[in-house]
Design a protein around this nucleic acid. Structure first.
Lengths: 231, 231
DNA sequence: AGAAAATCAAGAGCAGTGCTCTCGAAATGT
DNA sequence: ACATTTCGAGAGCACTGCTCTTGATTTTCT
């Protein structure tokens, strides 16, 4: 049985090596060009051998997606935790910049998780928790700020069609210690939407002709959105 | 020479038919699965014949991208022009909804232009004017509102690193009759960013668990952003 | 310790892809 | 009427994802 773990350990190592090689290939050519045969070749294996570890190319991609989410989440958590706890706006900005920095450092991985859904898209359940990590951090900041009573913004009326939708999110905030009003939830979702929009616009080349100094613009717009949220 | 135009006419028709078939295939399977051989098959041609009309698969894709931009632009212009000229906020909202409606009706085409850049991305010059159509409409609305003096918003200070970037856009507004301040430019870009972010989030499935009544939420957030711009 | 079962790398093979080249036939220009 | 361009078809290359079989090794059970 210890022997069994020998096999499973070397197997886990192989899985990691394959993902490593795939990631390398991904960084060079992008997701569309990721070829199982090529990663096999790079590892001195024959292609059919790789299928012992990943039943299909899409499964390999899914594994890379999970890893990408986790890498992003890790960076974000790391950056956010380095900021003084009561500096809510600073924590928020740290998250914004961490996401963007990671995206610029690993554009293809960013495209993998936030770009066009590559296969027909059936987000497997195991991608959901990693995908939530950034969201959780943002929610925690808002919840903390609310509890500290430092969050201020005009409360706008919400159409009841929207209001009905927000109940699960309200408990999501509440679980993290923040009793939030519906409008704050809306503003938070909008801010997260904007972070994603800004980074994708930049990375996918949709801001050529509009913005050239991306660093400065991003920082400024994120600051504006933080204010919009009320931080 | 009239005979010459016979040939060139049938050629143009063939080009259109190929694009048509490709679009059909695109709608079903998505861009990644678009196969030149399959469209050839559907047209009763042999694959090499298609290469007389499109030198490569990427060129076909580029043509589809241009068409997609134009389709979106057309829908937007149409919807916007149906609104009373002095109803600036209404015009803005019409654009927002037109973009989203088009995106939901043709998700794969939307993904083609706004998703992960499929090839290594070298946006050919002929994609730029079609890509600008929506932007132009939005700018025109803001310019009109400014000229009418109905646009109000707090003017926030802009870091000078950003300010330097904005000169070309300022003339872009001015050419359309609107003398705008830098902060308004920033707000406009942010709003366009948000439109894109919201639609992509919805279409690419990144709002599951956050929003389920997308129609209502989108309308509400667009209204908020219109107010943010000052409309 | 020896037999049975699971696991593995490798190879061959299938169906599909993008793309190139060559070859006749047809349309076009002179 | 002749020369030139334009076109469709076919064969072929190198590549892809994926399946199946084979023979060897390793693990597990008895």
């Amino acid at each position: 049985m210890n022997a069994a773990s020998v096999r499973s350990r070397v197997r886990a190592e192989l899985v990691d090596e394959i993902k490593e090689a795939a990631r390398r290939q991904l960084a060079i050519e992008g997701a569309a060009a990721l070829s199982l045969r090529a990663v096999a070749r790079e590892m001195g294996m024959v292609s059919s051998a790789v299928y012992r570890y990943f039943p299909s190319r899409d499964d390999l991609l899914t594994a890379l997606i999970v890893d990408a989410y986790n890498a992003m989440g890790e960076r974000v958590e790391e950056a956010e935790s380095a900021v003084r706890r009561t500096d809510y706006r600073g924590r928020w900005m740290a998250v914004c910049h961490a996401v963007r920095d990671w995206a610029r450092a690993s554009p293809h991985e960013y495209g993998l998780v936030f770009g066009t859904p590559v296969p027909k898209y059936a987000a497997p359940a195991d991608t959901i928790p990693p995908a939530m990590r950034v969201t959780v951090v943002l929610v925690q900041i808002v919840a903390d700020a609310v509890r500290a009573g430092v969050l201020v913004a005009d409360r706008e009326p919400i159409p009841k069609a929207v209001r009905a939708d927000l109940a699960p999110i309200r408990v999501f905030f509440a679980e993290r210690g923040g009793i939030v009003d519906d409008d704050l939830i809306v503003r938070s979702i909008m801010a997260w939407t904007h972070i994603y929009g800004a980074i994708s616009f930049e990375l996918f080349g949709h801001r050529v002709g509009m913005v050239s100094k991306h660093d400065g613009f991003f920082d400024h717009e994120m600051r504006r959105m933080a204010a919009f949220v009320g931080l």
